Simulated assay, not measured.
Amino acid sequence: MKDCTLCPRNCHADRLGGRRGYCGQGAEIMAARAALHFWEEPCISGETGSGTVFFSGCVLRCVYCQNHNIAESRAGRIIGWERLSEIFLELQDKKANNINLVTPTHFVPQIALALEQARLGGLHIPVVYNTGSYERVETLKRMEGLVDIYLPDLKYMSSRLGERYSHAADYFETASAAIAEMVRQTGGPDFDDKSGLMKKGVIVRHLVLPGCTADSKKVISYLYHTYGDRIYISIMNQFTPVCELSFFPELNRRITAREYEKIVDYALDIGVENGFIQEGNTAEESFIPEFDGEGL
């Protein structure tokens, strides 16, 4: 972190010296919430919830980000890695099904220390790495043996969409290499026979965006024909305009039921069986918790 290259931005910020990287963060861990979360896939949340830590900052900063108030600002509280280790154990004591690290990339060295310490203290539930997938393979390798479940996005295949919406024309090339590393680390999916909770594996999420169904089909096709049943694909319809989108008017609406149905039907037609879909008007519900420092 003296010359930070943790993420593909390779900004070389001296975060140890007080500078902030592209992610907006320095060397100290900043988080906005650590609590039970019930809005992940059923095999992650279960009945008692996922022990979710929302980290501040982000290496992508998508223009439509639903967590933009912590991804793009300095909102949150500073905690040390020792305190983070305690938080993991406290979430386990609250009957969390797993530890869920949301947007962890820019804090990987500290998180790795915290997880190693927590395991010495009795942490035994699975660890989930929840990411937008703009990751360096070298950084992910630091988490090998510490992460049980990867929960990455695959947002776009189109470099034009990657540049326009996430300032990353190389998004697909970078994210697909990262997902390949995740699958290498975890292997195929493994579930608890009694609870149905995932113990190990990869679930790749794809959020369907307004007017982008052609690209969505390419994403689903790539994932299925590359990995088959070695991963699960989660197709999400919950896109909700929550940011200022005057420069992106095409995104200033929810997706239609027909748009989502087209993608789900396509997935079924090509043979996808290991997957999750969202039913009903999930975009009308709030999937965004209060980032009030709970649990920190």
Score class of each variant (00 low, 15 high):
Y129C: 03
I220Y: 11
L251W: 15
G187I: 12
D265Y: 10
R61N: 13
S246M: 08
V102G: 02
I125P: 00
L151F: 15
A96L: 08
F191P: 00
R20E: 12
D292C: 04
A32I: 01
V59D: 15
G132S: 12
F172A: 14
D170A: 10
T52E: 15
F248R: 08
G57L: 14
E135S: 01
R136G: 11
R258I: 12
E163Q: 13
K218I: 04
D93G: 11
S166Q: 02
Q278G: 10
W39I: 01
V219E: 07
E290Y: 15
V183A: 01
A214Q: 02
R230N: 13
I125M: 10
F248M: 12
L151H: 10
Q278C: 06
D292L: 05
Y224L: 09
P104W: 13
P109N: 11
F247H: 11
E138N: 01
F55N: 03
N252L: 14
D190N: 11
F55K: 06
C58L: 11
F55Q: 13
C4M: 10
L91T: 09
H124Q: 08
N274I: 05
E116G: 04
I70G: 02
L268A: 06
L115K: 04
E135P: 00
S216A: 15
I79T: 07
A32Q: 03
I99E: 03
E163G: 04
V183M: 10
Y227P: 00
E138I: 00
P109Y: 08
R184L: 02
K200Y: 08
T174C: 12
R33D: 05
R9H: 10
E285R: 14
Q238T: 04
E279M: 15
I235N: 02
V208Q: 05
T48I: 08
Y64N: 00
I233A: 05
P104V: 03
F88H: 03
E138V: 00
E47L: 13
K95D: 08
E72D: 15
A35H: 14
D190I: 07
G196L: 10
A178D: 08
E138W: 10
Y222R: 05
P42N: 07
P189R: 15
V272I: 03
I179E: 05
F88L: 00
L89C: 04
G17I: 14
G228A: 02
V63I: 05
C58G: 02
G46F: 01
C243A: 13
D265C: 10
P210W: 09
L245C: 09
T174H: 10
T240N: 15
A169V: 09
P8W: 15
D14P: 01
L207W: 05
G188E: 15
L151S: 03
G26Y: 01
S73R: 04
K155C: 12
G24Q: 07
I70Q: 01
R15Y: 15
V202W: 11
I44M: 03
A177W: 06
R254S: 09
G132N: 12
F239V: 03
D190Q: 14
F55E: 06
A27K: 10
P126L: 11
A180D: 09
M1Y: 05
A112R: 10
L36I: 03
E163M: 14
I231G: 05
